[in-house]
Lab assay of single mutants.
Amino acid sequence: MPVRRGHVAPQNTFLDTIIRKFEGQSRKFIIANARVENCAVIYCNDGFCELCGYSRAEVMQRPCTCDFLHGPRTQRRAAAQIAQALLGAEERKVEIAFYRKDGSCFLCLVDVVPVKNEDGAVIMFILNFEVVMEKDMVGSPAHDTNHRGPPTSWLAPGRAKTFRLKLPALLALTARESSVRSGGAGGAGAPGAVVVDVDLTPAAPSSESLALDEVTAMDNHVAGLGPAEERRALVGPGSPPRSAPGQLPSPRAHSLNPDASGSSCSLARTRSRESCASVRRASSADDIEAMRAGVLPPPPRHASTGAMHPLRSGLLNSTSDSDLVRYRTISKIPQITLNFVDLKGDPFLASPTSDREIIAPKIKERTHNVTEKVTQVLSLGADVLPEYKLQAPRIHRWTILHYSPFKAVWDWLILLLVIYTAVFTPYSAAFLLKETEEGPPATECGYACQPLAVVDLIVDIMFIVDILINFRTTYVNANEEVVSHPGRIAVHYFKGWFLIDMVAAIPFDLLI
């Protein structure tokens, strides 16, 4: 008679799926529990143990900040960024110097990925580790590398530091407007667009060049630039800015003055950032001319202004700041037409079709709590990747769950009947059967004279019903998954307890 339990259901295979997918890609990662103190490590794979030199037993239950890997060259700011990422709910990448158990130093890129439950609360953290440099290539500990984003994938490793954006290309926007319009339909740009040429040739750093990471940081200074100062900065030398009595002219307006920039070969870094931020506020060169004239017309309804409409929906549905990093990277690809469009465009503009998908598509409701890094690593669709929660398995109709209350009560009843059979069957065979043979035949009273025979008949009927119930009862397979398919249940029961239950259900007393 089957006594099969499996009270692990309803099970959740999400954690096993993450481990299996990460292991298949030869990654070095740990999984931490966000619900406990210090976000203790609950799993670390073999790749991480080989990377740091510690065994799994030495890593388990330690804080996922990996303070046991810190050393003299470990930056405090990087460690603080990892700790801050564990307090938030967004994906974050941090470069930090770690030390192995043998004392060797290596520069590592740590990717902190939160995993949320159905309520939107962070319950786990996945920390992925990628070695960037070994100890002989690690720089000085005073050099802070965590304020910069990861290198873009479309640049060669040897040319990542030679990417320079020439400031004269930004200063000569109005001069290039006529050349853009003359391109017409034969050019790649839309009317009114501004073409910015980027020099990728390796050259020595000069005062006129600005690194790509500095251009990325310009967006942080746009908020500090007032509207009046932006307007004066875009007017140009024809209309000098008016300053109040006793007030000095704005240095932001002076930063885009061609006369002032041409007199000296070098520009201050602050002026460069502010000038680029001011130019980015204009949607095209037409807006710059309109600002000089004193009238700013409404933005025209053409394809170039609607190019950012799908980007707005993608940004609203993005799951991490990696989408913004990807957008900034692609927006700086050289030799393309940049349409400086305000994100607050007309909502009635139709979304044009684009061959290049900048932001990841909208994630469906079932995966809105899973970050983009987890979705990318697992390579699963929205119909396959579940949320991290207890999910009731989908069972067929008329199927009994093996952990249901009805099955528990039924098993206790069958257990009592088995005990009765084990006690009274030998007793009936030894004593009652002998008395029946010696006594007179009682054929007239039937079952009324033999109450134990009636009980034995009921017990046999219950055993037959138990066999039928076992054909529709779920079970737990070797992978700790609840199986509810009727065919698989029948095959599993035939290979197991079916023969024993059938022999126990045969009414031998009635056959004798």
Rank of each mutant, 00 (worst) to 15 (best):
D287H: 04
A172E: 12
D342N: 07
T375C: 11
E372V: 04
L315Y: 14
L248F: 14
C276I: 13
A40G: 14
R328N: 12
V195Q: 01
N128G: 15
T74A: 01
K161I: 01
L311K: 12
R301I: 09
P141T: 06
V122F: 03
L69D: 01
E274T: 14
R328T: 12
K362M: 08
R176F: 03
R273E: 09
Q25L: 14
L87I: 08
S379Q: 06
L296T: 04
R312L: 07
Q11I: 09
F22C: 07
R271T: 14
N339K: 12
T329C: 08
S255I: 05
H368K: 10
L109F: 15
R62W: 07
Q247G: 12
G238N: 14
R77Y: 12
V377Q: 01
D119M: 15
T329S: 13
R301W: 11
A193Y: 01
S322G: 12
G187I: 13
L170C: 15
G262I: 06
I333R: 15
R326D: 13
D323M: 05
D286M: 06
F163P: 15
A80P: 01
T337N: 14
R164M: 06
Q81I: 09
Y43N: 01
S26N: 10
P10I: 09
A160Y: 11
Y327S: 12
N146T: 12
L69F: 01
L51K: 01
P298G: 12
P299T: 12
K101V: 01
F68H: 01
F125H: 06
L256F: 14
A293W: 13
S379T: 07
S318G: 11
N369S: 14
D286A: 07
V131T: 15
L69M: 13
V215W: 09
T329D: 11
R4A: 13
A32D: 01
P2K: 06
S275G: 09
A85S: 11
A204V: 03
K166Q: 06
S261Y: 09
Q61T: 09
K135L: 12
M291I: 04
G187N: 12
A142G: 11
D102F: 01
S140Q: 14
T375V: 14
V115E: 06
N33D: 06
D259C: 11
A156T: 15
V59A: 01
S331A: 07
A83R: 09
R273W: 13
F48T: 01
L86M: 10
